[in-house]
């Protein structure tokens, strides 16, 4: 067991080596590609701060109207980027394999599973999460019609799948796939609700659709 060593290096001052390395690697970073040495560095276990610099790539995208200029590892999914780095925890991890829909967000207007989306593939894209449906403090702000409808029809219980259901529901109407309850059920089937609020969710979506509010 040598976790103390790791703890030491974690706390140790490796800024200088990192700075030197970053200087050397700036040309490589400009290629928008992690150089092969990064993988080698990881496998040989060289200074991890250097590895960190090597592993990361630039990413620029717009999230909820805000331009984000980031530096991330290519293996970071959009879901983990949102939750663990950008403090947007409204988007949930339910399965991490595209099998439940809790992580649904909009990328360039299309609903997708953010858990199977490498963040790097969203370069230049516009991402909307549940936090982006409204502006301001969630406790007081004016809600989106779909959010209002979910409250009115009690379209949730534990609430964990709810952000994904709502993002999916908004897209469902925008896509034109909310014409009948049957169609809604089919096109919402990528969002699992284990509490079983389905019937109320369908009612909420049909209500919004019928009222014709702009979603």
């Amino acid at each position: 067991m040598n976790d103390t060593e790791n703890l030491d290096s974690e706390l140790g001052n490796s800024t200088s080596s990192r700075r030197i390395f970053l200087k050397q690697s700036s040309a490589l970073a400009a290629l928008a590609m992690t150089p092969p040495t990064a993988v080698a560095a990881v496998n040989t276990g060289i200074q991890e701060k250097i590895a960190t610099a090597l592993e990361q790539m630039p990413l620029r995208l717009t999230i909820n109207g805000k331009v984000q200029q980031l530096s991330i590892e290519p293996r970071v999914t959009l879901l983990d980027l949102l939750r663990e780095q950008l403090h947007l925890t409204g988007t949930k991890k339910g399965c991490d394999h595209g099998q439940c829909g809790a992580c649904t967000v909009h990328v360039d207007g299309a609903r997708v599973n953010s858990c199977l989306t490498l963040a790097m593939t969203t370069e230049g894209c516009t991402v909307t999460t549940i936090e982006g449906l409204t502006v301001g403090d969630p406790a007081t702000t004016l809600l989106h019609p779909m959010q209002e409808a979910f409250i009115k029809h009690d379209g949730f219980q534990c609430g964990y799948c709810t952000p994904g259901q709502i993002m999916s529901a908004v897209a469902c109407i925008r896509e034109g796939h909310a014409n009948t309850p049957e169609e809604v059920r089919e096109y919402m089937s990528g969002n699992i609700c284990r509490c079983g609020a389905y019937a109320n969710i369908v009612n909420a979506i049909m209500d919004v659709k019928k009222k014709g509010a702009r979603v």
């Binding site: 939750r83 403090h87 947007l88 925890t89 409204g90 988007t91 949930k92 991890k93 999460t129 549940i130 936090e131 449906l133 409204t134 969630p138 406790a139 702000t141 809600l143 959010q147 979910f150 409250i151 009115k152 009690d154 949730f156 609430g159 964990y160 709810t162 952000p163 709502i166």
Partner: peptide
């Protein structure tokens, strides 16, 4: 009556254990 925590749940404001930082 409407669920008292509905607003937090529909806005993503509800914090589950993994959401705490």
């Amino acid at each position: 009556i409407d669920r008292i925590d509905g607003r937090m749940k529909v806005t993503g404001g509800a914090k589950y254990f993994a959401d705490f930082e």
